[in-house]
Amino acid sequence: MIDSAQSLTRQQIGRKKGLRYKTDWPMAILFLAPSLILFSLFLFYPLFKTLYYSFHLTNAQGEASVFVGLENYQYLFTDPAFYQSIKSTVLFTLYTVPASLIIALFLALLSNEKLRGIGIFRVIFSSTMGISVAASAVIWLFLFHPSVGVFNNVLGMLHLPALEWLTNQKLALFSVSIPTIWMNIGFSFLVILGGLQNIDTTLYESSSIDGASYFYKLRRVTLPMLSPTLFFVATVTLINAVQSFGQIDILTKGGPNDATNLIVYSIYKEAFVNYQFGTASAQAIVLFIFIFIATILQFKFTERKVHYQ
């Protein structure tokens, strides 16, 4: 009797849950509808449209005309210019992401100290967030100018030869990386500073009582507690570096000799200069896979060292 009563009660509970789920399902769809519509319009539709174009040749109006299967991808992987764009993108990422993270961490550690007037420096360090990519690139274009630029004038004062910052094939990618690092510092600094201010101060007080030095607390307390923030900043900075476009277009336009022709700029030139939307779409799909794999690898190997509270 007891077993039959318990089974009957379980059936009733199951029926109630089923009715509740059936009742809640339309309401859930209603609340999710705005997000689903926006994602469909601005994310899923462009993604599937790009994938569709990558299997076709297109006309000057960008309409698919001939289905060619994987020929666009075969063309890419036999094109030396495409391999050069991949190499430049990887080097550009290696130049910008670690440097942005280290400099922003250093500035955040300085700004987290309780010093008089530190608020002014916080505003200065985060000010690059308020400047657009175009305006920043124009500023740095004048700084890199071969004759009236500040950098070459400083070299002249030191009796050193002037450098062709943006026209030298060996220097161009490094030169473009400098403005990118400068532009990334503002966002990274603010996020890291917020993470520092959320660390429990009792941890530092306990370490001080035990006689721990500043660098010991930095290594054993600050960095482990800050690791989720650093992981987030590193991931976002990596994705932004791979997708860099504005500073490339203004400073070098992908030159000299495709030294700064990052894959995003290569997609732009292929689509809107050469009007080859099929191969441009294929490059975009390759870029998507590259970012996807890089993000997964970052989660797989880096997140192990992240200490979540």
Rank of each mutant, 00 (worst) to 15 (best):
L238Y: 10
I185P: 01
N257V: 08
D3H: 12
V138G: 00
Y21I: 15
W165K: 03
P256S: 04
N59Q: 07
V286T: 06
L70D: 01
F82H: 01
R116S: 14
S206A: 15
S147F: 10
L203S: 07
V273A: 13
N257G: 09
H307C: 07
L43P: 01
F189W: 12
A259S: 15
A108Q: 08
P146V: 09
S127M: 12
Y214G: 05
S266D: 06
V133T: 06
A64C: 09
L110P: 05
D24F: 14
K305T: 03
L32F: 03
I289P: 04
L163A: 08
F142Q: 10
F215R: 10
S244P: 00
Q197N: 11
A99T: 14
T202R: 13
S7D: 13
F189I: 12
I2A: 11
N274E: 09
N72V: 06
A99Y: 02
H56C: 05
K16A: 12
Q247T: 11
M225C: 15
V236C: 07
L105D: 03
Y53L: 04
S188I: 00
T180P: 02
I120V: 10
I296R: 07
F299I: 07
R122P: 01
K217L: 02
V264P: 04
D249A: 05
E303H: 05
F55W: 07
G255F: 04
Q309Y: 10
S208E: 12
A271D: 09
T23D: 00
R219A: 15
P34S: 03
M157G: 09
F301V: 10
F288V: 13
Q197A: 07
P256F: 01
T237S: 11
V68G: 01
I285F: 03
V68C: 08
F142H: 10
T235Q: 13
L160P: 02
V66S: 10
V236M: 05
S206T: 13
Q84M: 07
G278P: 01
S126H: 03
P26G: 07
F272H: 14
F215Y: 14
G254D: 01
L251W: 03
S126T: 04
A212W: 05
L105H: 06
I120Q: 02
K170A: 14
M27Y: 15
G69W: 09
G130C: 14
L8K: 15
L158V: 10
Q247I: 08
K16N: 04
K114N: 14
K170V: 08
S175Q: 12
G195H: 02
S136T: 14
S206R: 15
M27W: 15
G149P: 04
L171V: 00
F174E: 02
S208Y: 05
F277L: 09
P224H: 14
E205N: 06
G117L: 06
S88I: 03
